[in-house]
Design a protein around this nucleic acid. Structure first.
Lengths: 199, 199
DNA sequence: TATACCAATCAACACCGTGTTGAGTGGAAA
DNA sequence: TTTCCACTCAACACGGTGTTGATTGGTATA
């Protein structure tokens, strides 16, 4: 029954994280000191250092856990069935799930992609998508048969476009449903497929 | 003949900027102090404050001057002629000029878009393009007749894609010529135009 | 030639945030 | 009762900040 210590530990960490997120909403990362975080969280400054190395460590771990959650959703997303469904005009249930996850963690994504963050989360998220997602599809020889644009540009183009979509969604205050977003995303994938052979 | 003072002043500023750029190439912005900049530039720390408010001010002004240069190239870029030329299969001379400008300021763009910068230059550059460039084209009713995707998403999508292209170009060490890049860019614009009506 | 000018220097300043320390508190577990 | 442990608290040296006032040494002007 030593779990109560873990609970205390976890509770403090959560408090630190939520306070930090709030602070990031109206202040740039550089202007947030450990002092301020501790004060706002109602803990001693020393306590912060019992949990995190410094504020960069805090940010890193929060971003990592966000990406981990996203990865769990993307892992189940198989390109094959996804495109088959889309071909039939259906919206992939799994693709909707990814947008749902983003929607559920709206503030996190908004803050980490926003102007007050500095850590290059945008770039990491882009690399993340390239690695986990679009590369599988773009590398699929059945899908992209006759591309006239080099593969790396195709990938960069598609991933950035996808990220742009997400950012616009966040800017719009999540006005569209995850299903609508998934639909738009499917459209984009099809644009890219049709990238050749027109004009 | 008081210009010699301006020359001294300008020379010091240039030295500060070039040193700062070099430092940003292998160190994160947060890890660069005014001390270090002054030392590397061979000037007194106090002298730095005669020219800039702080290191944020230095960064802001450098980014601003880079965008100003870019703006000068984009200003002359009229959507009408550009698309007419593209329609004929020609590569716009002016579009090539924009990529040429980026290529000429390779290190600046690389550093400011890279992981060591923090100021959200990516987002500012994206907003810049939305404002100066793609909006004109996308808003052109003659060009995009029947879009099924909302205009703001279309714009976000297109701009992000364009930026992705530039980033990939920089990552590739400018392996392609400005003309090739302009060609790819034209392709993308045409994809977007054909965004509707398939599938 | 004198002198006003100006970029840059230099030393010193108070200030703030950092990360670490060692000793101590209070509630839960053994 | 004693041990355990998250957390508190005060103090520390350190390093970077932005500002100050006085000074140097070339350059232009009267």
């Amino acid at each position: 029954m030593a779990e109560i210590y873990d609970q205390m530990n976890e509770k403090t960490k959560e408090k630190i994280q939520s306070v930090f997120l709030q602070l990031l909403e109206d202040r740039h990362f550089n202007k947030i000191s450990v002092q301020t975080i501790a004060q706002a969280a109602g803990i001693n400054r020393g306590t912060f250092y019992l949990h995190y190395l410094d504020k960069y460590d805090l940010l890193d771990r929060m971003e990592a856990s966000l990406l981990e959650g996203l990865e769990n959703h993307l892992r189940q997303l198989q390109p094959g069935p996804l495109l088959e469904e889309a071909e039939k005009g259906a919206i992939s249930f799994q693709a909707v799930g990814v947008f749902h996850y983003i929607g559920q963690h709206e503030e996190w994504f908004r803050v980490f992609l926003g102007e007050h963050n500095q850590s290059g989360f945008h770039r990491r998220l882009k690399d993340f998508f390239v690695r986990h997602f679009l590369d599988k599809i773009i590398a699929n020889p059945d899908f992209f048969k006759t591309a006239t644009v080099p593969a790396d540009y195709l990938s960069a183009f598609a991933t950035s476009a996808f990220l742009g979509l997400i950012e616009q969604w966040l800017d719009n205050g999540l006005a569209e449903s995850p299903a609508e977003m998934a639909d738009m995303y499917i459209r984009i994938i099809f644009f890219i497929r049709n990238l050749d052979g027109r004009q």
